[in-house]
Each structure stands twice: as structure tokens, then as C-alpha cells.
């Protein structure tokens, strides 16, 4: 393998990790509050509100139903507005966040739904305010499940980031497309695929280990 290719792969791995992690982080900053809102405004929630629930649910569903590749192209003007360019890793983060945030919100919502209603009732009976129930009871009780959700989110976002290679995004996806697909270099294609698999494996394994360590229900 020549030196240039190694350098290329190195920067590819770095860019992929950069895009994935930053996007996941921002997606969670948006997705957690959104997921909490959908959860608490549900008919069984602690702040029942049909209108807010409908609007937030609709936003999530609309964005989630647009295929990522189409979303990527459709929001190009918005991407340019935010980062000033439409190519490269930074430009990929914008559509990644837009696509991942609603997905994360759904993951968060389903994790929160696992929290035992009896525990929430007990917290209420002890005189907790709604905010306290969310921050001191529901989120901490859902923590292990939220972490499992995060490992799923990371793998999904990683997959999306590779797709962005088609329209000028960076990372391993771009290498696989530009070298492996357009130049028929099968070996490069296979190596990038192997790296993608390894990265997903790493996050999955790390996530599960952390969950096993922090979940107090499993002892």
C-alpha cells in the first residue's frame, strides 16, 4: 500500500469520526429536549398537551420521512447559510444534525417510555415539581436505555455520513465513492468498508460495556 493511500485513509477516519461525533452531540442537544417534550405532552404524560404533542410529533415525522440523500441536497442553501460552504466535513454536519435530531428524539422518547409509571407516581406523591420529575427521576432512571439509544444513533449517523460522500462530503464515505466507485479501485473500497465496520463495532461494544457498568438493575 503506498504512502499516499495510508495518509488518505488516516484523514478519512479522522473526518468520519469528527463528523459523526460532532453531529451526534448536536443532534442530542436538540433531540433530548424534543424527545422529552413529545414524551411529557403525550396523553399519558405529566404535562398533557395535545397541540404541542401534535406539532412536535409532526415535525419529527416529516423530517424522518425524507430520505437522507434527498434531505442532504434539499437543504443545501441552508447548509451554505450556516457554514458558508456545501462541501467538506463541516458542510456535512449540518444535514447530519437535521436528519439525526428527530431520530434521536424518537430514541429518547422510547427510552423515557420505559420508565415505570409507578416510580413517577411515587415522585409526584413526594411533592416533586414537573421539572424535578423530568430531571431528577425520569432522565436518571432512563439513563441506561438512553445510552443504548446513543450507540444506535452513532451507528446510524456514521452510515449517513458515508452517504454524504456522494455530494462532496468528507470522510471514509467520500474515499470509498471517489476511489472505489469512480476509479474502480476495489481494494480501497474494501479497506474503507472494513474501517467503517470497525468503527461501528467499537462504538457498539463501548456503549454496551458502559451500560452494563452503570445500570443498577442488572446486578
Amino acid at each position: 500500500m503506498d504512502k499516499a493511500l495510508i495518509e488518505l485513509l488516516k484523514s478519512g477516519v479522522y473526518e468520519t469520526l469528527y463528523m459523526t461525533l460532532i453531529s451526534t452531540l448536536i443532534a442530542y442537544v436538540i433531540g433530548i429536549p424534543l424527545g422529552v417534550i413529545v414524551y411529557v405532552t403525550d396523553t399519558k404524560g405529566i404535562c398533557k398537551n395535545r397541540i404541542v404533542n401534535f406539532i412536535s410529533g409532526a415535525i419529527i415525522n416529516i423530517v424522518r420521512s425524507v430520505p437522507f440523500l434527498i434531505l442532504l441536497v434539499a437543504i443545501l442553501p441552508f447548509t451554505r447559510l450556516v457554514v458558508g460552504t456545501t462541501i467538506g466535513s463541516d458542510a456535512t454536519i449540518v444535514p447530519l444534525v437535521v436528519a439525526a435530531a428527530p431520530f434521536v428524539a424518537r430514541l429518547v422518547e422510547s427510552s423515557l417510555k420505559e420508565v415505570d409509571a409507578g416510580v413517577i407516581e411515587a415522585a409526584k406523591a413526594m411533592g416533586s415539581s414537573k421539572i424535578q420529575i423530568i430531571t431528577k427521576v425520569i432522565l436518571p432512571e432512563a439513563k441506561p436505555s438512553l445510552l443504548i439509544g446513543a450507540t444506535i444513533a452513532v451507528s446510524t449517523i456514521l452510515g449517513y455520513s458515508a452517504m454524504a460522500g456522494f455530494v462532496g462530503g468528507g470522510g471514509l464515505g467520500a474515499i470509498a465513492i471517489n476511489y472505489g466507485y469512480y476509479r474502480y479501485k476495489t481494494d480501497v473500497m474494501l479497506i474503507t468498508v472494513a474501517f467503517l465496520v470497525l468503527i461501528v463495532q467499537f462504538f457498539q461494544e463501548a456503549g454496551i460495556r458502559i451500560v452494563n457498568k452503570i445500570d443498577k438493575r442488572l446486578r
Partner: peptide, 25 residues
Amino acid sequence: NEKELRVFRRKIGMIFQQFNLFSQR
């Protein structure tokens, strides 16, 4: 009102059939 109720609830303890403890604490 909500706020007064929260203060009252501190004067009324409650236990349940399924215990309802915080599993992560």
C-alpha cells in the same frame, strides 16, 4: 394550587404495592 399541593404532599407519605423505588439510586 400546584405549589401548595407540593408542600402538602410532603406531609403525606405514601408506599405502594410495587415499592416504586428509584432503581438507579
